[in-house]
């Protein structure tokens, strides 16, 4: 086919431009959320003392950290779905959850504690955390990749990793309601390992499926 013929054909395709990536991503995540929620309720359940825990600022901080991760990852992922975009000027968004964690660790250090530092760090749920967060991430990761496939990311592995951060942030938000370890040291260790794992999976899949 000659290029002139192709151009004529493209101009004849008067279908409207596709929907914005943000909308497709939002719909995909909304569709996947109930699946991850069902996994939470079927496999773990919310911790029984959740009402009391909400008065503990370190319990609440977990949600601030994981939601900050999810929201900043959404912003970066949408930015990177445009072909001319680069991480420059945007990567700092991902430091917000890390900054919240550092703030949390510092405050905990300054308050008197019943348990020694290593005990708080190791906690009692590390194995559950490392299993549940990646598992609950999977439906959300699939949704995020479907949403981003709709865009035109020129660095598919990077976008896939950000999709991993996004889905791990949402899954960790769910998991935080189950986990009785509230120390920011626990969060900084085990949530981070679980998140890194999901980001690596996202990068590996993204490198294949996010090419356009």
């Amino acid at each position: 086919m000659e290029t002139d013929q192709l151009i004529r054909t493209l101009a004849a395709d008067s279908s409207r431009p596709a929907r914005p990536v943000s909308l497709v991503l939002a719909l995909a995540l909304l569709a996947a959320m109930p699946v991850s929620l069902a996994m939470l309720f079927a496999g773990l359940g919310v911790r029984p003392d959740v009402m009391r825990a909400m008065h503990n600022p370190f319990f609440d901080l977990k949600f601030a950290v994981t939601l900050a991760l999810a929201i900043s990852a959404v912003g970066v992922a949408l930015h990177l779905s445009r072909p001319e975009a680069s991480l420059r000027g945007w990567a700092w968004l991902l430091l917000i959850p890390a900054g919240l964690l550092v703030g949390g660790i510092t405050s905990e250090m300054m308050l008197p504690q019943n348990l020694p530092m290593m005990t708080r760090l190791i906690g009692s749920n590390s194995r559950v955390c490392l299993t549940a967060v990646p598992l609950m991430s999977m439906p959300l990761l699939a949704a995020a990749l479907i949403g981003l496939r709709h865009g035109a990311p020129t660095r598919p592995a990077v976008s896939g990793a950000i999709a991993g951060l996004l889905s791990a942030g949402l899954a960790a938000t769910l998991y935080a309601s189950h986990c009785t370890d509230d120390s920011p040291l626990f969060v900084a260790t085990w949530y981070t390992i679980a998140t890194a794992l999901v980001a690596a999976i996202g990068a590996a899949i993204g490198a294949r499926v996010l090419r356009f």
Binding site: M1, L6, D13, P20, P83, F212
Partner: peptide, 18 residues
């Protein structure tokens, strides 16, 4: 020309990202 045509197709199908 193969590359040009692939670019034109991508421009068309990804124009919502502009």
């Amino acid at each position: 020309e193969d590359i040009v045509q692939e670019v034109l197709l991508a421009v068309h199908l990804k124009r919502h990202t502009w």
